[in-house]
């Protein structure tokens, strides 16, 4: 009788976690934001979302084929996720070619040139967003008013709250008036902005799911948001006529989407909890500097990308303290 058994080195059990499941969970967490985007911006949002995902998948498939790698990794969900994140970072009125180009840039330049999943130093969706923002500033900042189709008009352009503030301060050195009711709109997403930026509630529901599924920890998002709130709060307290209040800073623009979904990208953020806190603080600091003193009204994308670049350095200087260490640290 010949018996043949598997020989392997322990452990002989596995949690069942897979990369696909991690990606799927993040995709599920983005669904509330996608649905609100479609609710507020209608067919344009839906088209942008689908087109962007399709573009990412085609670009990924092409890259894998060119490299002679198995197409099976196409199903890991990472390209779909990049597509959704990029779409949520585009204005609803983005022309189709911009969306398609963005998807290709994200996958080819943001991810595959570095070796594909796990090897990219920068968040691919943000690389694409910044490339598009710098190359096509007009198209990337043409915001449509939400629920425009409901009013019977094709598209009404309007400024984002942060953009409105920046323009007003530059022209008149005075803040535009903000009504209390506006905050409710910021919360639900009834304002101008990128597809995924507009609804704080939708982003937070998705974030809650990510926490529940233990895909993300509090370290990066909380530090990021608190840093922005505290720093902008200080300026607001000093001169409330010139600087918007921290609530506006937190609820508008890309802060929440960035903090919970982009800065927490595993591949491009530090691995230790100390590193994550430094990373979150850096993101918050740079965001505030750009928002208050930079040329752009919004700085979340740039902040995260700059901190992505700092991630290897942060990892190097924040190794966990090994159990039983007596004054030793790895360098």
């Amino acid at each position: 009788m010949t018996e043949q058994y598997y020989l392997s080195s322990s452990p002989h059990m596995h949690s069942g976690a897979t990369t696909d499941k991690v990606m799927r969970d993040v995709i599920y967490a983005l669904l509330p934001a996608c649905l609100t985007a479609v609710w507020f911006f209608g067919l344009a949002a839906l088209t942008t979302l689908l087109l962007c995902v399709a573009s990412c998948l085609v670009a990924e498939a092409a890259c894998l084929k060119l490299q002679g790698r198995a197409q099976s990794t196409l199903a890991d969900g990472s390209a779909v996720l990049t597509g959704l994140l990029l779409a949520l970072n585009l204005p609803a009125a983005a022309p189709w070619w911009l969306t398609v180009l963005g998807g290709a840039v994200a996958i080819v330049i943001g991810k595959q040139v570095y070796g594909g999943l796990g090897y990219n130093p920068f968040n691919p969706a943000l690389v694409a967003r910044v490339v598009l923002l710098i190359s096509f500033p007009i198209q990337m900042t043409s915001w449509t008013a939400p629920l425009a189709s409901a009013s019977g008009v094709d598209a009404v352009t309007m400024a984002t709250p942060l953009g409105e503030w920046k323009t007003a301060v530059m022209l008149t050195s005075k803040l535009p008036a903000v009504q209390p009711a506006d905050y409710l709109n910021y919360l639900t997403g009834n304002m101008a902005g990128c597809l995924g930026e507009v609804s704080a509630v939708a982003v937070l529901i998705g974030a809650a799911y990510l926490f529940w599924r233990r895909i993300i920890t509090w370290h990066i998002p909380l530090t990021f948001v608190v840093t922005v709130a505290v720093l902008t709060g200080i300026f607001w307290l000093v001169d409330p006529t010139r600087y918007p209040d921290p609530l506006l800073h937190v609820l508008t623009g890309g802060l929440l989407l960035g903090a919970f979904f982009m800065a927490t990208d595993m591949v491009t953020s530090p691995v230790s909890s100390t590193g994550m806190i430094i990373f979150g603080f850096g993101c918050g600091l740079i965001t505030v500097l750009i928002r208050l003193f930079g040329g752009y009204p919004e700085g979340v994308s740039f902040a995260i990308l700059l901190m992505n670049a700092a991630t290897p350095l942060i990892d190097r200087y924040t190794p966990p303290r090994k159990f039983g260490a007596v004054g030793e640290v790895v360098r």
Binding site: T18, T19, V22, T73, G118, Y119, P320, G324
Partner: peptide, 23 residues
């Protein structure tokens, strides 16, 4: 479980569960 290996996505789960506090 027999499943093929993929690239590390730096999710840091191994770091958070390591009782020796290693990377």
């Amino acid at each position: 479980a027999t499943r093929s290996e993929g690239p590390c996505i730096r999710c840091a789960r191994c770091v958070s569960v390591c009782p020796a506090r290693l990377l």
